[in-house]
Design a protein around this nucleic acid. Structure first.
Lengths: 229, 229
DNA sequence: TATTCATAATAGTATTCCTATCTTTTAAAA
DNA sequence: TTTTAAAAGATAGGAATACTATTATGAATA
């Protein structure tokens, strides 16, 4: 039996789209099939034409929702970071010990989302993979500055800020909470990508165990936070 | 007075080019102006047509040397990592203390190359900036696997292996030398990018001091290496 | 002298990225 | 129920990008 799915709504920056994709079936299809196609072929090979064919609409139809494929990717990543921040708040809600909180955060960042009986996370699972491979491409551009001014990266920065706050809870005199937070987030993904694609850059190439990435990050983070001097 | 420049030759993987760009003036111009244009406009906006116009040759002329612009970027990054490994070997040659060695490595990774009286490092300085912004795009693709089989990333992996070995010299029982090495390399660049473009993701947004990135990385790395348990 | 080799000049194709316009469908308001 | 506004569908096409192919020229090499 599949239980009821509680729809979690994430408020999106309106500058990310031309027409709100949540407002229509076509819009929802653009997002859903967009995720699937980017996952399958990679962002470089992904085009609005292919997406339109896949959905059964036209290129122009897709362009009515998103200005270009980069904006669509920014939209997807923004959604993902918003969703992940919610997951973190949800799973650390009743946790008082900041160290346990931080451990949970690392686990959530590193763990591929799994389908379970409670809800269908298939899209979130694909999104997690997309963010690993394509996530940094949204800001590694010449237009970072402008995009940042329009708050396209707010969900990402908010998430890092939340993690940075937990870091400070763990150790009030720690000097680099923000940089440590962005390091945790980026490395949770990069070590995963390396493990699966350039294994000699990690110590997990053989086992391919996400738990080892988590152990590495825990070791790295808590050594630093417990270091007295 | 400008002293003699000792040309340092870095052996390149022949599968990276169609014709060796070091073998002709046109080839050298493609690399040199390629670096300048990618630096100026970013990789996405960079085209072989613009490059050809800049040099005063034709599009077809550039295509005779490099299959496409992605291969050119892979070529440039491979050269950079080879060059950096040389720099590291050179500057740690007479250092016996592995901790001092590792500190020097972190400094070299994080520090933008400076022109000095000894030699003209203008191209290396631009390359350093290019690697920060575009470097990860060479492997964050659907073709990582094939590219890796052709050893396109060997210089990067070799550099990480060298750093991993120094890590082990510092602490023989450390469990994650390779992952720590790739973390150091990636974060030396990402923290720099964040500091300059998304400053709230770092603790150096105000000062914009590379020395602070170095201090952060040192704290992170040596806390972990000195952690006894 | 013949030949090969890099380069230049030119042309052209497929695809990508994007805009415009017109018609039909849908669905909400009057 | 009718009207009307918005969304979607259909079609066309243009500018730029990412290539490939062909031929001509001049310089070095056998």
């Amino acid at each position: 039996m599949k239980s009821m799915k509680l729809e979690l709504h994430i408020k999106m920056n309106e500058a990310l789209y031309l027409r709100n994709p949540e407002s229509s079936e076509l819009g929802k299809n653009i997002v859903k099939h967009g995720i699937q196609l980017i996952y399958q072929h990679g962002f470089e090979a992904f085009t609005f034409k292919k997406l339109a064919e896949d959905i059964g609409t036209t290129e122009a139809g897709v362009y009515r929702y998103f200005e270009n494929k980069h904006k669509l990717l920014v939209y997807l990543t923004a959604w993902y970071w918003g969703w992940l921040e919610f997951q973190i708040r949800f799973h650390t809600n009743n946790v008082t010990d900041p160290e346990l909180k931080l451990k949970k955060v690392i686990e959530l960042l590193a763990t591929a989302v799994a389908d379970d009986d409670i809800s269908d996370y298939e899209n979130e699972r694909l999104l997690h993979q997309i963010i690993i491979t394509e996530g940094s491409k949204v800001y590694l551009t010449r237009q970072v500055g402008q995009d940042n001014k329009q708050h396209f990266f707010k969900p990402y920065k908010d998430l890092c800020a939340v993690i940075g706050d937990i870091v400070i809870e763990c150790n009030k005199s720690y000097k680099y909470p923000k940089s440590l937070a962005s390091t945790i987030v980026e490395m949770a993904h990069f070590q995963n990508f390396f493990m699966n694609n350039l294994p000699s850059l990690t110590d997990f190439g053989k086992s391919k165990e996400i738990n080892e990435i988590i152990a590495f990050l825990n070791e790295l983070v808590f050594s630093s936070l417990k270091n007295k001097r």
